[in-house]
Design a protein around this nucleic acid. Structure first.
Lengths: 205, 205
DNA sequence: CGCATTTGTGTACGCGTGTACACAAAAGTT
DNA sequence: AACTTTTGTGTACACGCGTACACAAATGCG
């Protein structure tokens, strides 16, 4: 069975890839047209409706794909952790690798948090919160292991994520060299947050 | 003289206001049409060209307006500084005031950093860098005054700006209550950065 | 096989778009 | 007062858009 199901999945994927292919610094998802995406995917405009209700529906699918990719990166970063010097170095390196590999997905996730429909924005925020929560747990566990607890793990993780994603968003339109500089500065900034959070957790103060 | 010049400036301003009025969470600047803006401003479509070359030109004007507003807020924050407890509290409060007062301008500046033409993005980045540089100077001066120097003032200021603007971007789609919570967390996070930066500047370490 | 379902095509529609052109009314200039 | 310049209008065009409808080809199922 499922020569048909397979093919359907395939052209669905083609539509997703087509949309991603059209996204770059100049173009936001909101400016893509249904016909444009269908054309890019080699389909008649009407065939689009066999796979998605409308462009918003496609957009939600894209957020989903991007979110899965992000979570994969997190896992990779944790695996590398054992062999690397610090969580921070490993995480930043993994993230920047991912960005270099699939910039369009990040473009979506980072740069269109503020546009689009309500459900669209909520989906993106959910993905990022997911990311933040897992980092918060990591930080807390790590702090206990090191006997150096941190202050308000969620706020700390949130700050780190904000810095990292903000930086990553800027990295999208940079040369490889500038990216390396940015990554180095990011590491410093994350260290500041880490140290500051530890300091704020110290008794007395 | 200049009954004409005045009137021209006036309708130009009308076009700018019309564009801002059309911007909200759902609508990005890139999705506005020339006709739409002209309509909102009570003008025939063609009259648009008497004031701007095209929509991109209008966009650059908007960035300019937003940037001026931002710098004004900075100055206000510095003036309040003397009467307030900390730079951080004062700055965050001033910024959030401004956001509540003119959300559309911030929507533009914060949420469309990553879309639009090259010149558009560069203009926005320039405005933010301006902001960051002035903060860096403040931090350095303050550190010397307190005998508590900070580490790499620019990187520190950059981290603070990233956090603040990231938070401010999220605040745009929040209720007043949530905003207050967010502002409180922001203050904590900025303190972390401050403390961490001071720690990193400590000799030996 | 024969019929039903699914996936995709072609045509057609009404609409909003950017913008070109010709023109009107007002303001500035001499 | 006679002119030029500036600001805005009205009409018109070709285009891309979303989507409705009728139909073709392939696949799945009895």
């Amino acid at each position: 069975m499922s020569s048909r199901t397979d093919k359907k999945q395939q052209t669905r994927q083609n539509l997703i890839d087509a949309a991603l292919g059209l996204l770059n610094q100049q173009r936001s998802f909101g400016s893509l047209s249904l016909r444009e995406v269908a054309r890019e995917a080699g389909l008649a405009p009407n065939a689009f409706y066999r796979h998605f209700d409308d462009m918003e529906d496609l957009g939600l699918a894209l957020v989903d794909v991007a979110g899965q990719g992000l979570r994969t990166v997190m896992r990779e970063a944790r695996q590398k952790l054992a062999h690397s010097q610090s969580v921070i170095d490993a995480s930043v390196a993994a993230l920047f690798d991912h960005i270099a590999r699939e910039p369009q997905l990040f473009h979506m996730l980072l740069r269109e948090q503020g546009s689009g429909s309500e459900s669209w924005r909520r989906a993106i925020r959910t993905e990022i919160r997911y990311f933040t929560n897992e980092l918060a747990e990591d930080l807390e566990r790590l702090g206990q292991a090191k006997q150096r607890p941190i202050f308000d793990p969620y706020a700390t993780a949130d700050a780190m994520v904000a810095i990292t994603f903000g930086g990553a968003g800027n990295a999208l339109s940079m040369t490889a060299d500038s990216r390396a500089e940015l990554a180095a500065r990011l590491v410093q900034q994350l260290r500041m947050i880490m140290l500051g959070s530890e300091r704020m957790a110290e008794p007395k103060a």
